[in-house]
Design a protein around this nucleic acid. Structure first.
Lengths: 119, 119
DNA sequence: TATATATATCCGCTTATCCGCATAAAAGGA
DNA sequence: TCCTTTTATGCGGATAAGCGGATATATATA
């Protein structure tokens, strides 16, 4: 419908992009980028209730962004694709560029960066 | 708080990632990846009401993902960073991997891919 | 100033999403 | 089997996000 993005890709985009839109899920992905983790490890790392962590993990799994593997009673979550890591690194770079831009702007105008989290 | 992701980066992540989480905004970004566009051009390309397009564009602008520039009465929107494009390409690759995986799985098991859009 | 064009914003409404307690389900050990 | 540990899910409530018509704002031109 738009550009050369096929309908199939667009459908899948609807599946993946919203998964990345949640900050908690983003933090989970960053944690998993370090190493595979059990739910409990993630609960401790993020300091969130277990039900919250589990639910977000299930979203990531349903969207095929992470893989799971049982180890006794524990479930180990792993990032599925290296490319997801690369994409996340790219996002970090974008963020760093933003920080730089805003610091420059702030020092030029002698103003606070004035960023609205939610316009 | 999590890994080596500094607090500042985490705050910015909260600003950028949710912006990418909406399908309409994703389509806008893809359209702008082709070439800078006015609001009207985007309205026609996406076949959405003007107010809807404008609102999403303002989100993207507030999150510093696009730049604007007036041309007479029109406002031209441009992708701000090349890296955003690269990150989007990376996401496409991930999606293509998913498609491949699921097709293989489906042919092996003689099943429908069975993907839930919303777990 | 009046009119036209293009964009941004206001508003009410609907829907989706997130949260976390409580509880179910899965696996292992006594 | 009973108990423990670990993870997943049902549920209700609160919040956020999206939608789109109507309207305001900005710019250009006559």
């Amino acid at each position: 419908m738009i550009n050369d993005l096929s309908q199939e890709l667009e459908l899948l985009h609807e599946r993946v992009c919203p998964a990345l839109g949640d900050t908690t899920r983003m933090r989970l992905l960053y944690a998993l980028a370090d190493k595979p983790c059990s739910v409990n490890e993630l609960v401790e790392a993020l300091a969130l209730p277990q039900s919250t962590v589990s639910r977000h993990l299930s979203v990531l799994r349903n969207r095929r962004l992470v893989l799971t593997q049982r180890q006794g009673t524990a479930v180990i979550y792993t990032l599925k694709s290296k490319k997801l890591l690369e994409a996340m690194d790219m996002l970090r770079d974008i963020l760093r560029e933003q920080i730089q831009d805003e610091n420059e702007l702030a020092s030029k105008l002698d103003l606070q960066p004035n960023l609205e989290a939610n316009p």
